[in-house]
Amino acid sequence: MLEEILKKYPQHEDSLIEILLEYQNKKTKRFITEEEIAQISNYLGVTESKVCSVVSFYTFFSTEPRGKHIIQICKDVPCYVNGRGNVLKTLEQLLNIRIGETTKDEKFTLEYTSCLGNCDGAPAMRIDGKTFTNLNPNKVKAIISEYRGVN
């Protein structure tokens, strides 16, 4: 799959972030391995250490395997003052993991994120590419059972 994605992009350094984003999004475990870093650096003609520095700089990229769905809960002030704490507690209980961890069945990873730009619907979270707003414990339960059901 990586090769197919690479072919779509010009062999310039400035394609790097785009490639990493697209590839990681399509991978089940949402992470980038050393071999893949080598392959990308080879294609773009940049050093491996350069690719590594980009992977480690941006929060979106991971070198550790993660769950199929990434749940990101917003940790900034507008969400904090609108009951973000309850949402996090509900998620940790439902999934039986703490923030930063992945469920045993490798279905969910729970992470913090900076403001999602949805503070008018605080508290907010993002699952993969979708943002959910005006959360409360019941709403969170419904969303998680939907994701569980789908797969």
Binding site: D14, V54, Y58, T59, F60, S114
Partner: peptide, 23 residues
């Protein structure tokens, strides 16, 4: 062009570096 989860990339030179494919 999409960012990848970094606030400082809103700063103009950091943004430029990011479009160029760098940290």
């Amino acid at each position: 062009r999409s960012g990848a989860g970094s606030y400082v990339c809103g700063e103009e030179f950091a943004l430029i570096e990011s479009i160029e494919g760098k940290p």
